[in-house]
Design a protein around this nucleic acid. Structure first.
Lengths: 67, 67
DNA sequence: ACCTTTTGTAAAGTTTACTTGACATATTGT
DNA sequence: ACAATATGTCAAGTAAACTTTACAAAAGGT
């Protein structure tokens, strides 16, 4: 699962900790997702996309081998 | 997390087993998600939405208390 | 009524998301 | 250079998604 979190964060100029707080998860969780260590749950993915005012599909992209 | 899987399935006229096969999970997983026993992973949610040719947000809806 | 297909559900196990706490390494501002 | 903020990462634990097997119940067709 690829994602554009770092870019969208840069556009909004918010830190990983800021995003974590806005979607109610730990900073490490945002860091791990951004680094593509694992994929978020659907709920978290939708919340993150919502922070960026973008549909899920514009923030996250399926790759071969997901799920 | 609410979802419209049963409705979208009815529109396509496919069974839970059909959908399960198309997104490569077990039939029980589809059944549990459809019955809202738990939410899918982001990858699975995206694959399901893709089967229905709809954006994730038109198939799944966040509720208070997710995640 | 009967048979077939579809759906519901349960138990037990594996894998993965997410947590907290802690510390090391950038990066940024003055 | 120094201090403060931001990011990376690790370890150990909890919670939740997903699996397989199995069976019961409901729905549909003839």
């Amino acid at each position: 699962m690829r994602n554009r979190i770092r870019i969208e964060r840069a556009i909004l100029n918010i830190t990983q900790a800021d995003l974590a707080e806005r979607v109610q998860v730990s900073r490490q969780t945002i860091n791990a997702i951004e680094a593509e260590k694992y994929s978020p749950s659907l709920a978290l993915g939708m919340k993150i996309a919502r922070v960026f005012s973008k549909p899920v599909e514009e923030v996250f992209e399926l790759e071969e081998g997901d799920l």
